[in-house]
Design a binder for these strands. Structure first.
Lengths: 179, 179
DNA sequence: TATAACATGTAACAAGTTACATGATTTC
DNA sequence: GAAATCATGTAACTTGTTACATGTTATA
């Protein structure tokens, strides 16, 4: 909730924008930070606007669909700083759905577990690769740090997975024939 | 969704249990794996029961409130293996809310950012400490691995935070007087 | 000429949480 | 005698997603 408003406000600081534009920016540039959907972005912008945190002005080019251009105002800046402080100061609790599968790997033959975890690793490598390739045309220090964080966490996942797979393969009841 | 059913089914394999008991177990033993709420657990158990994946029998001790004891059946075991395979094979996409704050740290004086991130670090250290202290009376290999994963991810967070704070402190416009 | 991109919005749906209701028993 | 624990459940609410409706303009 809060972090979505923070994101929208933050993006409006660098320039006034309309909803479509903001969502488009998020989708093409920040797919590793959030997957906020269009309808959600529009709804939040309207809510921020109703709360007087952002101002609206309707623009229109020719007979193209009119666009609502949002600009952050003083109240919005105050809210931004408040949300930013809260966000920076708190370590959000992250739950990993994948941990639940791990909990029950005793119920499978080691070979099967290794087979599935190898798939997980491939999946992960693809994601890691994608983050690597992200163009950082935005040279903002902060955005860079956020990307570094994301990359580091993916690498931790990858290193954990590799260790775990090795460990399982080293177990006495692992049948090497299946490879 | 899926991972919640997987968890409940998995816990029912080791023993038949009633909802209160299962939720109690989760709350006291798995606070780092999930924070599934009571109402959610009950609802999922009822859904699994309606889907014929688990059987119910009502027990009652004296005049205490009756309890619905759930047992996993063959259909449930099949579902369990299917959900387990899917869970193990997929790397779930994790978004870190904290990344959004990081993105905008350019908008604050470095000293403020450092101050907030130090708070974040304390918060994180507390969480890391708590995981460290978790009693692993359950000696299941899988549960252990899941906990190791959680621990490793927290350590990656911590290491990232330390590096980032150091980096910020090393920036030319960081004023050491404030410490 | 079809379809993708531009631009906004709404209604239905999905999933989970909060808060409460009920009522017995054990503990402070 | 009050409060916590045991045991289940429901209704209202929150948040976000999916899918669609609308209509123009650029592109294939």
């Amino acid at each position: 909730m809060d972090h979505r408003s923070l994101l929208l406000l933050g993006l409006l600081i660098s320039q006034s924008q309309h909803g479509y534009q903001i969502h488009d920016f998020i989708e093409t540039n920040l797919p590793f930070i959030t997957d906020m959907k269009k309808a959600t972005a529009y709804a939040h912008l309207e809510k921020l606007s109703k709360g007087k945190y952002i101002d609206v002005s309707v623009e229109q080019e020719g007979s193209r669909p009119p666009r609502k251009v949002y600009s952050i105002n003083n109240q919005g800046m105050e809210l931004f700083y408040q949300l930013l402080a809260e966000n920076l100061a708190a370590a959000d609790t992250v739950f990993y759905e994948g941990d639940i599968g791990l909990m029950f790997l005793d119920h499978l033959p080691v070979e099967d577990t290794v087979h599935y975890l190898n798939k997980r690793r491939k999946d992960l490598e693809k994601k890691h690769h994608a983050v690597q390739l992200t163009p950082l045309h935005d040279t903002s220090k902060g955005v860079n740090i956020a990307f570094q964080h994301k990359k580091k966490m993916l690498e931790a996942e990858l290193s954990f997975l590799n260790e775990t797979i090795q460990q399982l393969k080293a177990s006495p009841d692992y049948n090497k024939e299946v490879e």
